[in-house]
């Protein structure tokens, strides 16, 4: 089910959290809301869920073309996974997952046995078979995360919303769970919107990335587009490493470290290249990073493959020539 967001405004007192935000989330996609803290991404997610309401005005949220702006959260059919999971501490894992089914009106509430079956089915789906009787405090962070996901899925939501799904996990679990979620999404095909401040996470996981900044959407596109054709210096700097090269007083060139071509100073061509001196060299791993100083005193980071580095046989103090390519905004 597609999600359509039209000209949403949201203020908290005098603070503007969202300003005229519109967005289309295609059916079945996995979309990331990416931005620094305070950019409004979580507020937007909560408005889609019905946990927050947009300011009065033309703002609308539509699910599959149907306006749900006035529908309360409990009737919207959203699965919401909270940043710190918000598991019911006093209930078992099974009770947590079954909760949404037990809240249905008596007429279409499944029987106890059916709820039990559904809970076990969901536990299997999130790879937590047999943990039904545990309580949340007996689980690891990654397990809690998946219980929260199973609980959200139990009500057969039309869309799945995740707030910083990996924010509270440590690096290794984070990576595993990220891969697992991608495969999981592809299997169940549920329209999914998640919030993150981690650009690597957004690029690796999502079909569509929405970059937000200061209550507005900065750019929307596939990870490729966002990375290769950033539409503003902010997006450039926010997504991965970038060098900011001052060309003159009021224009800068942005170039990623791996896009810089390196050749010997002897082959230097003043028309297309800049002379630089290697200040520092870091070469543990498949990619080597050079910190170089341009002839005008600016510092740049340059990335090379280890092979290239070995071929050129560079070392700290060497003079090199850099090709920075055509000036991008």
């Amino acid at each position: 089910m597609s999600i359509t967001i039209r000209s949403i405004h949201k203020t908290f007192g005098s603070y503007k959290a969202l300003e005229d935000v519109s967005l289309d989330v295609p059916d079945g996609s996995l979309t990331a809301l990416l931005g620094p803290s305070g950019s409004g991404k979580t507020t937007l997610l909560r408005i889609v869920a019905g946990l927050e309401f947009a300011d009065d005005g033309p703002g609308k949220v539509l699910f599959h073309g149907e306006d749900v702006s006035g529908v309360p959260a409990g009737k919207r059919g959203v699965g919401f996974v909270f940043q710190h999971y918000a598991l019911f501490k006093h209930m078992t894992v099974g009770e947590n997952i079954g909760f949404g089914l037990t809240t249905l009106p008596r007429s279409n509430r499944p029987k106890k046995a059916e709820i039990g079956d559904r809970v076990r089915e969901l536990l299997k789906l999130v790879k937590l078979e047999g943990l039904e009787k545990r309580r949340p405090h007996e689980l690891s962070g990654g397990q809690r995360q998946r219980v929260a996901l199973a609980r959200a899925l139990a009500i057969k939501p039309k869309v799945l919303l995740l707030d910083e799904p990996f924010g509270a996990l440590d690096a290794q679990v984070r990576k595993d769970l990220r891969r697992w979620l991608r495969i999981f999404h592809d299997e169940i095909g549920l329209t999914t919107l998640f919030v993150t401040h981690d650009q690597e996470e957004a690029l690796e996981l999502a079909d569509q990335v929405v970059v937000m900044r200061n209550a507005r959407i900065e750019q929307v596109g596939s990870p490729q587009e966002i990375y290769d054709q950033p539409r503003s210096p902010f997006v450039y700097e926010f997504l991965g490493n970038v060098n900011k090269v001052a060309l003159n007083e009021d224009s800068n060139q942005y170039i990623r470290p791996h896009e810089i071509e390196v050749c010997f100073a002897a082959e230097h061509d003043p028309a297309s290249g800049r002379l630089a001196k290697i200040q520092h060299l870091f070469s543990a791993g498949p990619v080597a990073t050079l910190t170089v100083r341009l002839d005008d005193g600016q510092f740049l980071d340059v990335e090379l493959s280890r092979k290239q580095l070995d071929d050129l046989a560079l070392d700290v103090g060497d003079e090199i020539s850099l090709k920075l390519g055509s000036a991008a905004p």
Binding site: A49, G74, F80, F88, F99, G100, T103, R151, A152
Partner: peptide, 10 residues
Amino acid sequence: QEEAAVTLGA
């Protein structure tokens, strides 16, 4: 926790 319960229809 209360908000989670709301999204689950309680």
